[in-house]
Design a protein around this nucleic acid. Structure first.
Lengths: 209, 209
DNA sequence: AAACACATTGTACTTTCGGACAGGTTCATT
DNA sequence: AATGAACCTGTCCGAAAGTACAATGTGTTT
């Protein structure tokens, strides 16, 4: 996947060429539409010379092109990371990032992932711990299942049939059914579909009567 | 950095060898202390056959060795990701992750980063920002369905049975089956469970033969 | 008018699922 | 030794799900 760097100077930094020998540079976000559109690009926004107030708008404009966008700033800040990631960018890194790190970021974002500095990521996790704790409580029922039942439930959540589960766990199809019956009773699911949805934190409409 | 896989079978999966030709396998976490300690290792925990209740303990034990630890599970869950990441692991991924992804994960964790499935990361971010980004990604395949088929598919995604769908749409149960057969063919789903999961953007493991 | 997509329903059939009933083992606790 | 929990398995049976083959009616497009 080719790399496009949006930078005011319209020239590639050495590090960028080092990381991506075939990268190209454009001066402004609107010019992105001038690059050949057949291929899949990653867009790198050099926000080093862009006022903080204007960065969000630029990020939005870049995201509108449909390509994964990585914002590069002189001094990564949590608040800015929040707003930009919420705006749809997929990467947020230091503008002086080493070439190796640039390649790593490229890998992550081209696969649909998000990238931000590790320390920042850990902060995010710490912050969201409490909020998600509530979600976890919903699956407190899951802990009521025995070890074997949990394995069966996981397989159902992946769309496996009884036969497949039996083969995977090396037990009889009959045993799978036994575990399933226990699971349904404990989790209040009506059938494997509702179990599969419940396991994935998806609410179901039709409860058992 | 060499890779050590902790797996009950004590044998490396093909994917793992594919990703890391020089990887080694050990049967249990305690055996980790037997590997030469001069070098820097990444430890991969195969938790596929480990009861959920015991996973946290295993993760803690592995982390105690001082190496970066990646936990691999059959069905990544947010709650589990939290408890394990809080316990000190640096990666949390699917046990069936492709070799390319494994390499990506290795890069991230060896540089001190955390890795988890992109969708999960986005969920965490969404929770943190409190902006419930219910980004319902438009499923291209979904548009291939006729109007009536879409309605049936939606009901299945809510956990409805054929009888319930028939009542809701005021048609015969037989007609529901007809629509379902068409839906399965168009979306490549094997049964209603896989359809329900697909409709909710959840990947399934067992495809149709 | 003809062709076509869509929606609907029927009969008949096979497969899968889930429960009822009845056991068996292993292992830890009492 | 006894109790119980977890795990495993068997047979039987009914319900649900899914498929095959066939058909009708409604629209719209050509």
């Amino acid at each position: 996947m080719p790399q496009v760097f949006v930078t005011p100077q319209n020239t590639l930094r050495e590090r960028w060429r080092e990381a991506f020998p075939e990268a190209v540079a454009v001066a402004e976000v609107p010019h992105l539409s001038t690059v050949p559109s057949a291929e899949q690009y990653s867009v790198w926004l050099d926000l080093g010379a862009v006022p903080v107030a204007e960065r969000l708008a630029q990020a939005r404009a870049a995201c509108a092109c449909g390509y994964p966008v990585v914002a590069m700033v002189p001094l990564p800040r949590e608040g800015e990371a929040f707003s930009l990631l919420s705006a749809g960018i997929q990467g947020y890194c230091h503008v002086e990032a080493a070439s190796g790190q640039l390649q790593e970021i490229a890998q992550v974002v081209t696969r649909g992932g998000l990238w931000m500095p590790p320390t920042m990521l850990q902060r995010f996790l710490a912050v969201s711990t409490r909020s998600v704790a509530a979600v976890q409580l919903g699956m407190a029922e899951f802990d009521e299942l025995t070890g074997r039942e949990q394995m069966v439930a996981e397989q159902v959540a992946l769309g496996a049939s009884n036969r497949e589960i039996a083969e995977k766990l090396e037990i009889t199809e009959r045993t799978v059914k036994a575990h399933l019956s226990a699971i349904f009773a404990k989790l209040g699911a009506r059938d494997r579909v509702q179990l599969a949805l419940k396991m994935n934190n998806i609410p179901t409409q039709h409860k058992k009567g």
